[in-house]
Design a protein around this nucleic acid. Structure first.
Lengths: 197, 197
DNA sequence: CCCGTACCGATGCGCTCGCATCAGAACGCC
DNA sequence: GGCGTTCTGATGCGAGCGCATCGGTACGGG
């Protein structure tokens, strides 16, 4: 066996470069040459890792998706000390990106969402991520609602959809500068409070 | 004076072609040549109407923005027979595009939103539209809340932000197929009900 | 009637894109 | 240590892009 290269780590390395570029100039501004330059590898290396540009983009989307999902799932793990509702609030807040160090990921995410509308390959990955997120939210809301004994219980699925859509919409509005992160947080907090407090 | 041409109507005609293409293939797939072909005019005509491609895109965004805003504003006009809350519900539903004949506009809108994150010219127009919408929502919510005498009145601005973000998020989720229009409507209806019914 | 001006459509230019190609370097195995 | 396989980076290619240009055309005023 001759020279061997760790393709997996290189693909990740390139995916990160893709995200940096997508953040700076949008998805349209991502070219193979620029990706190679940003990742400090030759164009040939990029081409060997991904047969086509779209394959590269899909991989990058999956990468960013995993990053974000992981971050949210961390918040969703209900620590003994906190209620399910609190965990949900944290998770939703995480989505609405109060922290600016995660703003870049969200910009990339938004770019991919827009692209997914016209690209089947991207749409598939995107939907899978959203479905998983909705599932997790549904479970936690159901859990939180059992703690609260109320006359008419919530419909967990519907509330999960609401929360997810709201968080997503807030994210978008923060990204384009229509809302400040603080305002988004305020909206989210009030919404959560209307459910349980 | 020699031959004269109605530039305004031609610009609108071209803007419609831009929207059709953006709907079909995304914003990236919009080229001057294709726009000219779709609009059934020569490339030269397009170039005379718009000095650069970006100028054309900005104009198209404004056009689509006006279309959508007009449609929503129509719903927001409170007819004597209906409560302010009902009007709001209709308007929000309109945003969440139950009707598939307006799906195309929303796709174009989403494409522009994603692009606006990296383009200042687009962002300016976009924010102006959102601000106007939020203003209208705020006013109507305030109105609706005065009708309902409750102990703790709502914060109209915050509720407007909530409603707008929720409607926007739902729109996105419908567009990528994560939700059906029916589910989106259900979510929106329940949210409105939690405010006033 | 005809001249000047504003429109028209076609073509060309320079550039960048994604992708293919290829000679040479690097490395594990016999 | 030679060999074969795998990796490497540079270069080429055809296509498509935005934009500039230009001769021809149609039309209104003098």
């Amino acid at each position: 066996m001759p020279k061997q290269v760790d393709h997996t780590s290189r693909r990740l390395h390139i995916a990160r470069a893709v995200c940096h570029l997508a953040d700076e100039r949008g998805l349209e501004g991502v070219t193979l040459r620029d990706v190679a330059a940003k990742a400090q590898v030759s164009m040939g290396a990029v081409q060997r890792c991904f047969r086509t540009k779209e394959e590269m983009l899909v991989f990058a989307l999956e990468y960013v998706g995993e990053l974000i999902m992981e971050r949210i799932q961390t918040r969703l793990v209900r620590s003994p000390a906190q209620s399910a509702g609190t965990a949900l609030g944290h998770a939703a807040t995480e989505i609405s990106l109060l922290r600016k160090e995660h703003r870049a990921e969200a910009r990339v995410w938004l770019a991919f969402v827009a692209q997914a509308v016209v690209s089947k390959a991207l749409a598939k990955t995107l939907k899978a991520n959203y479905a998983a997120l909705q599932e997790a939210f549904t479970r936690l809301i159901s859990e939180a609602d059992e703690d609260t004994h109320r006359a008419v219980p919530l419909d967990p699925r519907r509330e999960a959809r609401t929360l997810l859509a709201l968080a997503d919409g807030l994210t978008t509005h923060v990204l384009i500068g229509q809302l400040t992160p603080r305002e988004a947080h305020d909206v989210l907090h009030t919404h959560m409070a209307s459910l349980w407090d």
